[in-house]
């Protein structure tokens, strides 16, 4: 039997959820018997294979047009999309920007910060355009499984993957794995 392919990526996140994924420790050896990690921020392959993967995992909120692109590409190339962490599920810390507004936040960060002299808000066609509202991934693409937590525990992530590998859907997180902080 060929291995189940998994691709992961991060949007506006802190990498903490990926760290939590690595925190499944030696269980990853067992996991690797049945899955293959393809693209991820920590592997050489940066885009999910064009012929698709079974499971796509996204961390981080949708903050700019680049995030939207990455999310859409992942959605197109995976069968089951998992949003992990508070940013991907709720908007999280990046969504605090919504409370002041994007332009206001950019101004504060790049121009009005006390240490800045002659500040400039970055603007380049190579950069994603900041969105007016930061949202969770599900406001941009359809998400199949949500695992909130800041970060979600390694146990919660391992539980969800194990359920999917066993063919049990929908994944219902038991209360001990559901947490918002």
């Amino acid at each position: 039997m060929s291995k189940i392919k998994i691709a992961t990526d991060w949007l506006a996140g802190c990498a903490g959820c990926h760290m939590s994924l690595l925190d499944i420790d030696e269980r990853i050896v067992k996991l690797l018997e049945s899955v293959e990690f393809t693209s991820s921020p920590v592997t050489d392959l940066k885009h999910p294979p064009e012929d698709g993967v079974t499971i796509g995992i996204l961390e981080g909120a949708v903050c700019n047009t680049h995030n939207v692109e990455v999310a859409k590409e992942m959605r197109k190339r995976c069968q089951i999309l998992i949003a992990i962490g508070d940013c991907a599920t709720f908007g999280g810390v990046p969504a605090m920007r919504n409370l002041v507004g994007t332009q206001e936040a950019l101004k504060r960060a790049y121009i009005e910060t006390e240490s800045v002299v002659g500040g400039l808000i970055p603007g380049s066609s190579e950069l994603g355009e900041p969105l007016d509202t930061v949202t969770g991934v599900d406001k941009v693409v359809k998400v199949d499984v949500f695992i909130p937590g800041c970060p979600p525990s390694a146990d919660a992530l391992f539980f969800a993957l194990s359920e999917l590998l066993a063919g049990r859907t929908p994944v219902i997180l038991p209360p001990e794995y559901l947490k918002y902080d």
């Binding site: 949003a83 406001k139 909130p148 219902i172």
Partner: peptide, 28 residues
């Protein structure tokens, strides 16, 4: 949003969210 809330862990709303499996926000 719980992570930066003082009541996180002692919040009755949060407990209900867990009890009813609210794992993302259904609305804006």
């Amino acid at each position: 949003f719980c992570p930066f809330c003082e009541a996180s862990g002692d919040c009755e709303l949060q407990n209900l969210g867990y009890r009813y499996g609210i794992d993302h926000w259904a609305y804006e």
